[in-house]
């Protein structure tokens, strides 16, 4: 089976600094793939290329065989790629429910004119958007907070809100940028279990950037390791853990 996502020869430079150099890997349908590496390895840069926030200097990204890089950032969601952000990027003045409803933007059509006129089909679309969003809140145990503004909720809760929002567009590939960052020990494993549950119930493929090694190794079927912008290893968690390059990158040169 063809991979759902292929990254080919991706290279990004910021001035003289090479953030990514000729990185290539595949993500197969239904997998959870972990992307790890020390600070500054280029993980988030790679993510930002996938969601088109950055334009790489060289290379190609194929989603189901279709090139992603020629598309503007707002066209990515409708392809079926959803994402969360490392430091949360919710809409603070909107309620939790409204945040998730914005997540359905790429799956709805009504425009300025039809919204302003409140045409009957707009009402039906709005009802569908709201019902789907409420279902997701239920799924992620957020129903009680539906009418609460996103601002002022605890960090761990906001992470779940962001997950709900990213699932709203019914993505087939979900990019999670450090879902465990800022969470305490229990929350980290809860979110790991949640990722597995989401993948199982919603037929998803997940690409996960994460610092928390325990969590990545626990949930991923495949791990890609970056260091200084290069891919230094790729394989199952067990293989990667034994890889001498990885050990060196994380622990420094053996004494």
């Amino acid at each position: 089976m063809a991979p759902i996502l292929s990254v080919r020869d991706l290279t990004v430079r910021f001035g003289g600094i090479i953030a990514l150099e000729s990185v290539s890997f595949d993500v197969d349908e239904g997998q959870i793939v972990g992307l790890i590496g020390p600070n500054g390895a280029g993980k988030t840069t790679l993510f930002n290329c996938l969601s088109r926030l950055y334009t790489p200097d060289r290379g190609e990204v194929l989603f189901r065989g279709r090139p992603v890089l020629p598309l503007p950032p707002y066209r990515i969601a409708e392809l079926g790629i959803g994402r969360t952000f490392q430091n949360l990027a919710l809409f603070p003045t909107l309620t939790v429910l409204q945040n998730v409803m914005v997540g359905l933007h790429s799956r709805s059509r009504s425009d300025f004119l039809s919204n302003a006129m409140r045409l009957p089909w707009v009402g039906r679309e709005e009802a569908r958007i709201q019902a789907t969003a409420l279902e997701l809140l239920e799924f992620l145990d957020l129903t009680a907070l539906a009418q609460h503004p996103a601002a002022g909720l605890p960090f761990g809760t906001l992470k779940r809100v962001e997950l709900a929002r990213s699932l709203a567009s019914q993505p087939s590939l979900l990019l999670l940028d450090e879902p465990a960052s800022g969470l305490n020990h229990e929350e980290v494993f809860a979110i790991g279990a949640l990722i597995q549950k989401v993948r199982a119930t919603r037929a998803l493929t997940v690409l996960l950037v994460e610092h928390h090694m325990g969590m990545v190794m626990q949930v991923s079927e495949k791990v890609v390791v970056l260091d200084f912008g290069r891919k230094i290893a790729e394989g199952t968690p067990a293989e990667v853990r034994r890889d001498p390059n990885v050990v060196r990158a994380y622990l420094g040169e053996a004494a």
Binding site: P72, Y74, F91, H105
Partner: peptide, 12 residues
């Protein structure tokens, strides 16, 4: 509120 994540949600 956040134009980057608005675009990631598919908003032009």
């Amino acid at each position: 509120d956040n134009h980057i994540s608005a675009e990631a949600m598919g908003i032009n």
